[in-house]
Design a protein around this nucleic acid. Structure first.
Lengths: 339, 339
DNA sequence: CTGTTAGCGCCTTCAA
DNA sequence: TTGAAGGCGCTAACAG
């Protein structure tokens, strides 16, 4: 049962290969009678068009390149679930590129992705900077391959189609909730590495603090638990430190912080209220359960794929910058009750 | 700068296209002088061989199909990290197939994977059953495409190259540690769905219990926190229930169980000792920190890719069944101290 | 060491 | 509605 080709099918169905090709790609151009005969033979022989030959001849691959920074981040993995399900709807395949531990420079890699003949690119590296953004633009223009940024944004420009949530607003909102609780010494726990989305959260936090005339305190730490625990220890060593509220840019950082303060015999949320970001499994597995911003990450993935598909089909995407709604989930690390 | 072809390069370098092809694929067959000239032109033009044409002509794709059940499982995501890094070493690309929510039957999907001309398949659906195993064998034989099972095993046969850890032994060991602690009422918390690896853990647990002449108690629950919390509630409602030790087949189940019992004012590990499986981030983010079996999941991914590469290259893989060592990490949910 | 040439399997006009 | 034929960009003999 080895690799039937279009010729085998044509011969067995007593038609030319052109007809076989048509019944697969333009069924309406084939007489129903012969069409069914061909389809039957196709099934019998287990024929599947060779993707290479098809791609070479048609200049299309029904494959999209997916570029991610690191699979182990829960948000990335979940987004891929959304992307995969949506891609299936269009019969698109996913070519996965993981940037992690990459010595290869990104420009080189993007050319490689393009060379692999993908019809479009889903880019979700939220460490994006000006240079990379420019590079993506160049690639899109030079090779005419549409690119969509998923849960990744470059706020200083909007030439690339983007799907995201309003992180600025989300951070602004949770900070305000803490303020409404009466918290005065609210800290932002963010990453030391430059993630664009975290920068936006920081701005939202700063805005809320400024409006309330409170002094902002930003602590930069790592997503790595063993590292941030040390940071937290140092933080509490500072003489006269006061903390009664925390916004963490990731659930894992929030949970890890909660653990730190509970070990110091402080009460959550009586002494300190904490918000996380993302609503990952960490949030519901922690004790107390973490209050956090809920990001519809699967939907972001699905929507990203849908937008890309539109672009591939040549439908002009009128709105470049797409925002999905977030929500705030009150669990056990805050006192706010949702109205 | 649009899509240079091999002809453009040949023309610009004043050689034939064959020479260009050679400098890329068999550099030693080209005079260093011309080779460098060609390489320079290639660089100038930003030429990258069209993957389709290359694949069509060479019958190789340097792409492997990766079949996973669900991205959101931490183990799957981590394994992909390992696979990706290893694949990069060989300049292999990854074509990702997510089974989740799949209405398409698996046979159909596998043919699709094959039709996409992958050089090999990495299969990591640990819900594998006899039928699927047979199917994989058929695919491998019919299409001559090597398949490697990663962290997935079918213990009743070993025709397919497999890379895994000894889950049976691991479960046997942790159960014994609990027994050595003096625990008498040890429960196994496993999944209701049939995962082959979890079945093996169950057998290891049963063996240890039997040897110690203790009554085994198996509770089948879900990976879903909201669901298993309910199961745990029911469990504790049983009249006269006694639990002093737990082996959970997943970290998340273990953590969720620990939360349940602490809410019931029991002490961990004074009243109950708990072991998880995998050593995910959940294990270190929980409070108390979870003791668990550490699975070298990234290594499994990398090794799987390495094995597949061997098979693709025609090197016979002598050992079909490959086992990577695990270890037991004692943290705060058990009393055992590692010797 | 280099060039010529014949495909790889399929799509897509162009005729019939 | 169908068939014939050219070509997609590249690899791999085979000559030279």
């Amino acid at each position: 049962m080895n690799k039937a080709t279009i010729y085998n099918v044509a011969y067995a169905a007593n038609v030319s290969l052109a007809t076989v090709s048509r019944t697969l790609n333009n069924p309406q151009k084939v007489k129903p009678e012969t069409r069914e005969r061909v389809l039957r033979v196709i099934k019998e022989l287990g024929y599947k068009p060779n993707a290479f030959a098809k791609g070479l001849a048609s200049k299309k691959s029904t494959t999209v390149g997916v570029i991610v920074p690191d699979m182990s981040r829960a948000s990335i993995a979940e987004m891929l679930n959304g992307i995969a399900v949506e891609a299936r709807k269009y019969d698109y395949s996913l070519l996965l590129y993981v940037l992690k531990n990459e010595k290869v420079e990104e420009a080189e890699m993007l050319r490689e992705v393009v060379a692999s003949q993908v019809d479009g690119i889903l880019y979700m590296n939220d460490e994006i900077n000006e240079e990379q953004y420019a590079l993506l633009n160049t690639i899109q223009d030079d090779y005419k391959v549409p690119i969509v940024l998923a849960n990744t944004l470059y706020p200083y420009d909007n030439k690339l189609v983007t799907i995201c949530i309003d992180y600025f607003k989300a951070a602004y909102e949770v900070t305000n909730r803490l303020i409404e609780e009466g918290r005065q010494h609210i800290y932002l726990l963010t990453t030391a590495r430059k993630y664009m989305v975290n920068d936006l959260k920081e701005e939202g936090y700063l805005k809320a603090m400024k409006e309330a005339r409170l002094t902002p305190r930003v602590v930069r730490t790592s997503g790595d638990i063993s590292v941030n625990t040390i940071h937290f220890d140092e933080l509490f060593k500072e003489p006269g430190i006061q903390i009664d509220g925390v916004v963490a840019v990731r659930d894992s950082i929030a949970v890890s912080f909660v653990n730190s303060i509970i070990e110091r015999s402080k009460k959550v949320p009586d002494d300190i209220s904490v918000y996380g970001f993302q609503n990952t499994k960490y949030a519901s597995l922690s004790r107390p359960k973490l209050s956090c911003v809920d990001i519809p990450i699967i939907d972001i993935g699905a929507k990203a794929m849908a937008l890309l598909k539109q672009e591939i089909d040549g439908e002009t995407v009128d709105v470049k910058f797409n925002v999905l709604p977030h929500s705030i989930i009150e669990r056990q690390t805050t006192k706010s009750s949702v109205e």
